[in-house]
């Protein structure tokens, strides 16, 4: 029986983690490679790296980080941020990532999804969506709008329509981030998560709002998500991945417990 996945998300700028991660011991808390190894040993099912580097020099550093992660951890991971074309995708995949994630670039030029799927297979292409709750209109009948640039720029696109389109274009997975819930630690946006998960036949990763394991349980059951993305609740040492998985398993949710 397929396990639900728990996926820590790491933001990287110029090869270093951007959020202060509060761990003690032999882990360099600023080093994405060390953190990847730490989370892999702790039982993370997958990892996501978001590269928020702007410079081309920083992009080169990120590729070296990807190579090093792939040489030291042996679980799947994806890389997002700054991927604009098939050449960018190829560089990241060759460096050792399993998947690449496209977000703003796919909104601007959706063909990057089909090009990526044709070149590397749908399973490599994750479409990241940042979504904001808005009044229902003719243009946005679901009441959820796709936004880009970290939530600052509205696109006028309906989130549900965009999710379906992304699937048609060949996306293998959708990482669905609620801007409303993000950072609140009050739980995932369950209505949105369920709406999208029910409307596509590819896996949906819930993102934004996790404050405690019960929130993840809700996203994986009521929200119908295949995976839950987490950041601060593990980065700051409040919970361990093993502890989270124990709680989820106690609620009857199938998670990987031996690694």
């Amino acid at each position: 029986m397929l396990s639900k996945r728990i996926i820590p998300c790491l933001d990287v700028r110029d090869g270093r983690l951007t959020k202060g991660v509060k761990f003690k011991g032999n882990v360099d808390i600023g080093d994405p490679v060390d953190m990847a190894k730490f989370y892999s040993d702790e039982g993370a099912d997958e990892l996501v790296f978001y590269d928020i580097t702007a410079s081309s020099e920083g992009r080169g550093i990120m590729l070296r980080v990807v190579e090093e992660v792939a040489s030291k951890t042996f679980i799947p991971f994806s890389v997002g941020g700054g991927i604009r074309n098939v050449a960018d995708m190829r560089a990241v995949l060759l460096a050792g990532a399993e998947k690449i994630s496209v977000n703003s670039a796919a909104v601007r030029a959706p063909e990057i999804i089909s090009q990526g799927a044709a070149a590397f297979g749908s399973q490599c292409v994750v479409v990241g969506m940042d979504v904001l709750k808005v009044p229902v209109t003719l243009e946005i009948p679901s009441g959820y709008e796709v936004v880009i640039h970290g939530g600052r720029t509205p696109t006028g696109m309906d989130a549900l329509a965009w999710a379906r389109r992304a699937q048609e274009l060949g996306a293998g997975e959708i990482c669905l981030n609620s801007i409303d819930a993000d950072g609140t630690k009050e739980g995932y946006e369950l209505t949105l998560t369920r709406l999208i998960a029910e409307s596509v036949s590819i896996p949906v990763i819930a993102s934004g709002g996790a404050g405690k394991p019960e929130h993840m349980a809700d996203a994986l059951t009521q929200g119908l998500a295949s995976a839950a993305l987490i950041a601060s609740i593990v980065h700051y040492g409040e919970y361990t991945i093993r502890g989270i998985k124990d709680i989820l398993a106690n609620q009857g949710i199938k998670v990987r417990q031996v690694w």
Binding site: S3, S201, P203
Partner: peptide, 12 residues
């Protein structure tokens, strides 16, 4: 629920 395809993730 209908099977999600591909079968992607960890299984025993």
């Amino acid at each position: 629920r209908n099977l999600i395809i591909p079968h992607m993730g960890w299984n025993g």
